[in-house]
Design a binder for these strands. Structure first.
Lengths: 248, 248
DNA sequence: TTTCATTGTGTACATTCTACATAATTCTTA
DNA sequence: TAAGAATTATGTAGAATGTACACAATGAAA
């Protein structure tokens, strides 16, 4: 058996309580904080990531994540949404925190801690109007070297995505409003890096009842066109808690 | 079909590259960073959390997480381990990042961003030698109000734990070296907040082959004693990738 | 020695996963 | 316009897993 001590509701000791909280906070080191967005897209049956050229001389030519320093009094998630909006014009995107990166030497300009956010967006909805810094989609698998520790960050986010997409049907954020089952399966195969059985895949999604047959067909495909579906957001929102552990 | 632009390997534009990276970093706001450890234990069939009294006058009497400001050039995970060691004397504990909390007003002394870490430890292995600030184990379910946004943080960590324990058999970190199946089940029931079928629970763990029967029995229990087991760490390490989605 | 609480175990049924093949449709091209 | 190529659409059987449920054995307590 385990023994433990149970807290009693003592009055706290009166001595040593800190009154000047501002002074307390000011006495500690401060660090610049950035957010970095790993923005995934899907196109031509490949997982893509949106990158820019680093604007640091020492990383000349290297690719970099879309990030920025957090402003005063800006919540970090807000900062991440701001970066997304500034760079892509998108506001209504999926975004989730993945983790912090705080190795002391990770930034050449001194200590900078970054929080990585993962964002999924539909390349089609999105024009990349802002061509500053050569904003481009990159095939995820082709990315080798990057500025800072950004390669480590995108690898972490990729693993996060692989896990997350099996728990929640996030993949829809990467697809157009109308998509075929084949496109959906290609997406899953691209992200998970495995081949899936077509019949079982379709059966699985059919049983989840998350797809609405919109009665249209693919066009301009060089073979028999497939049905087009849209995602049943209502149903998903209702059953959100359920989607943990989707196996294919 | 989706269209996209593919990046070509251009030479980056020569103008506008930043050379003085230190100056760049210095031009941005800085924030004090803390780590907060949500330390779970298990005792008397209850999930427990290790808390101290806040040493801030304005939170007099309120309970607070174990946390500290990050030191210069200290990686945040390191800082979390340091806090654990300073407060509990424990070094070899399970610890994982859960998330950041960055609401501008979350700390009364000015902006402080915190990163929450979740730690699981075995109450038995641990003597709470350090009695500063009334370090105590609290029944998780009894915690109502806390200093700062710490209630929000522990709630987030609890949800994280509920999810995580179903993907990986983390619960062993909370148990003594030797435990009975009943104790293990109690742990799962306490964390998940549900009753589990005893036979199915045992069958499940038997099939995972993670328990080693050490040939001993419980002692001093007021009923038929159960067998004692230890956790098969080797097997677990080998099959780590497999443990996603344990259902009971 | 009886009673009580708890451990330990097995089986039948339902659900889900997995592997696998054929017909139907449309486009292409000869 | 007919034949061929590519792809969609669909079902089933067997395996594995999940779920519900009951009874005998053990040791402690009375």
């Amino acid at each position: 058996m385990i023994k433990s001590s149970i807290p009693t509701n003592h009055i706290p000791k009166k001595e040593g309580l800190i009154t000047d909280v501002h002074k307390l906070v000011e006495s500690y080191p401060r660090v610049p904080i950035t957010v970095d967005c790993v923005i995934f897209g899907f196109d031509e049956n490949e997982l893509k990531v949106l990158l820019i050229r680093s604007d640091l001389e020492m990383y000349k030519g290297k690719w970099s994540l879309l990030g920025d320093f957090a402003a005063d009094n800006e919540e970090l998630k807000e900062a991440a949404y701001r970066v997304l909006k500034e760079r892509t014009g998108m506001t209504d995107v999926y975004l989730e925190e993945v983790g912090t990166f705080s190795a002391p030497q990770r930034h050449p300009g001194g200590r900078v801690i970054t929080v990585a956010y993962c964002s999924l967006l539909n390349i089609q909805h999105h024009e990349l109007k802002i061509h500053a810094n050569e904003l481009h989609w990159h095939s995820f698998s082709s990315i080798k070297e990057m500025a800072f520790d950004h390669k480590k960050i995108i690898d972490t986010c990729y693993q996060w995505l692989q896990k997350r997409i099996q728990e929640h049907p996030l993949g829809f954020n990467l697809l157009p409003d109308k998509f075929s089952l084949r496109e959906l399966q290609n997406l899953y195969e691209a992200i998970l890096g495995v081949q899936l059985d077509r019949r079982n895949f379709r059966k699985k999604f059919a049983s989840m009842d998350l797809l609405i047959d919109i009665g249209e067909m693919e066009e301009d495909v060089p073979h028999r066109p497939g049905k087009l579906y849209k995602f049943n957001y209502e149903k998903y929102e209702k059953n959100k808690r359920k989607w943990v552990g989707i196996d294919f």
